[in-house]
Design a protein around this nucleic acid. Structure first.
Length: 552
RNA sequence: GGGCCCGUGGCCUAGUCUGGAUAAGGCACCGUCCUUCUAAGUCGGUGAUCGUGGGUCCGAAUCCCACCGGGCCCGCCA
């Protein structure tokens, strides 16, 4: 959990001590610039018959006794509440100075698993997939920041039909050659083309699945070896964006262990049969198949086993899935919660698809922008720009800056959009580093570093706060509320959009409030403000995967 | 046919959960500011029937209903 002075709760509690029936949603941050907090009196006026100025008098009586309240005033039907900026600044400063961060985190014992990516190892990671990756990675980081003990998970498919096709392709076309991503991918694309005219392929795949399911260890190992080549390639791409997976689980592990058979057997009471295939019914009377008629297992059953595995270690299971998995997730939820009565909290986060202007992305059809390609081109573009802007810097520094800009931009552009919105990938947007972008944030950080480099020493001071300072302080103060919101709704885009708002406030401050050269009291105050800002941007950068630079 | 998601200036996005003060940013376009801590920045301007039509409410981008447009799903695939 997060530790900080929660004025919103305090104010809400005070108001509710007078009007017990007040709706907490009537007390909140004001977004219109009238105050810090606003209390809407409509409902209380109606229920109590009191006029707004009577309500103001009563609310003022309670709130004016609080040391953090600056003033309480009435504007139409709104009671506007302002917090003393010096108190907020002191709160921020002491947290940063003493705890090293604002807000401070109290380590929660609860353990959380965040599964993301889990893409089939059949080809290089592409732009359509990393939306899932980056969502999951940021969610994991946000939950960790909030205080949970978080582990990221990747479920590796080395058992499905697609992987058998991949392996069969390698065996037919490239047997004996050292497997590489190119060889694997081209074979995979080729076999789906030839399958239509050559029924022997289908038969061979079926045969492979049978041997596999019977526990042919040699076959399992061979397939795992091929899948590993693709997985290594994917992992290299993940690493290039700063994504780390803590735990890989292979689907084949549950076949080897015999657990899948136990799971199907455990449903014997409600199991139905269709030509030897086994299924159960969901509440909508739709069939959920658990085993094929030829006895081989299905992804759904392997996923049950995987979730049983996760439930042994984690209190809270979070799965990031493509929106095409909504049906799968609904059924999984039904089986785990209703049938197996799993007590763990389970949440699914869905991401809508990223398409190209030319249509859908597909590994099989070779119609996709890979992560490596995206990173390469973005880096080139960044290098062009930074070389123009900073001809004074040496080559290696320019390279370093462009790489950080590229990684950060890619992550930020994807993460700042609400996950259930469909996205069309456009190079013109990916290569734009102006406006609402990662470099905008990074640049403001570099400016903050510049200020601190130029400023001298001065004793901290919290007095005589001017409007631009106040706006920045209030926005920084809101940070823990935004972390909490993002954690509750599992939405990193909330943090991304908050950050843009925060940077704008910092830019206003930067323009209007010189630090070095100002009198000692003013400088003492502004150095503290800049240091807090720097600290919060550093904190946020870890949540969003932005690589900050002291100069750029 | 059934289910889920999305629709906000020319383009992209926030706000929708929890209804409330002038609908907030960015791109593009026009104009401004580098003798002061980095101009990847700043300030100002043009530009929005919040998909359409009903309804609820003192009050609707936000809630309800219908419809339209786009996406996804409805496999013994994953």
């Amino acid at each position: 959990m997060l530790l900080f002075e929660d004025y919103r709760s305090k104010i809400t509690d005070d108001i509710r001590s007078i009007y017990t029936d007040v709706d907490p949603s009537d007390v909140g941050f004001d977004r219109t610039g009238h105050a810090d907090f606003a209390f809407r009196t409509f409902r209380i006026s109606k229920s109590s018959g009191k006029k707004p100025d009577q309500i103001l008098a009563e609310v003022s009586t309670v709130l004016s006794g609080r040391p953090y309240i600056e003033n309480v005033s009435l504007e139409g039907p709104y009671i506007n509440i302002r917090i003393k900026p010096s108190v907020m600044l002191r709160e921020l400063d002491e947290s940063v100075e003493i705890k090293g961060q604002f807000p401070d985190t109290f380590q929660d014992p609860e353990r959380v698993s965040v599964e993301h990516t889990s893409t089939n190892p059949t080809g290089p990671l592409h732009v359509g997939r990393i939306r899932n990756t980056l969502l999951g990675d940021s969610i994991a980081r946000i939950l960790g920041r909030y205080g949970y003990r978080v582990t990221t998970q990747y479920f590796v498919n080395d058992s499905g039909r697609q992987i058998m096709a991949l392996y069969e392709a390698y065996r037919r076309y490239n047997s004996g050659k050292k497997p590489s991503m190119d060889i694997i991918l081209s074979g995979y694309q080729r076999i789906y083309g030839e399958m239509e005219n050559d029924p022997s392929i289908e038969n061979d795949i079926k045969e492979l699945m049978n041997s596999y399911e019977k526990g042919d260890v040699e076959l399992m190992d061979s397939i795992k070896a091929i899948a590993s080549v693709a997985l290594d390639n994917i992992n290299t791409s993940l690493k290039s964006l700063g994504v780390k997976i803590d735990d890989y689980t292979w689907e084949s592990d549950f076949i080897r262990s015999g657990e899948l058979i136990e799971i199907v057997d455990s449903f014997s009471d409600i199991l139905n049969d269709e030509d030897g295939a086994k299924y159960i019914l969901n509440p909508d009377k739709e069939k959920i198949f658990l085993r094929r008629s030829n006895g081989t297992s299905l992804y759904f059953t392997r996923d049950i086993a995987y979730h049983k595995y996760k439930a042994r270690t984690y209190d809270w299971i979070v799965d990031i899935l493509g929106e095409d998995h909504k049906g799968h997730a609904k059924n999984l939820q039904f089986v785990l919660k209703d049938l197996m009565e799993m007590p763990n909290r389970i949440d699914f986060v869905f991401n809508a698809y990223v398409s190209l202007e030319t249509g859908k992305m597909s590994t099989r059809k070779g119609n996709a922008v890979t992560v490596d390609e995206l990173l390469e081109r973005t880096k080139e573009e960044a290098l062009k720009i930074v070389s123009e802007k900073r001809p004074d810097l040496p080559k290696d520094k320019l390279e370093k800056i462009s790489l950080s800009v590229a990684k950060s931009s890619i992550r930020f552009n994807i993460i700042r959009i609400n996950a259930n919105k469909q996205v069309v990938f456009k190079w013109s947007e990916a290569l734009n580093f102006e406006g609402d972008s990662a470099p905008y944030i990074m640049y403001s950080y570099a400016r903050a570093c510049g200020i601190l480099k130029h400023a001298g020493n001065a004793r901290p001071n919290y007095d005589d706060i001017v409007p631009q300072e106040r706006e920045l302080i209030v926005t920084m103060y809101q940070y823990p509320y935004r972390i909490t919101e993002a954690k509750d709704s599992l939405r990193p885009d909330i943090i991304a959009n908050y950050t843009l708002d925060l940077v704008k406030k910092f830019n206003d401050f930067y323009r209007e409030c010189p630090v070095s050269g100002s009198d000692e009291k003013t400088m003492g105050k502004r150095i503290r403000i800049v240091q807090i800002y720097k600290n919060i941007i550093e904190d946020i950068s870890k949540l969003l995967g932005i690589e900050l630079l002291e100069e750029m």
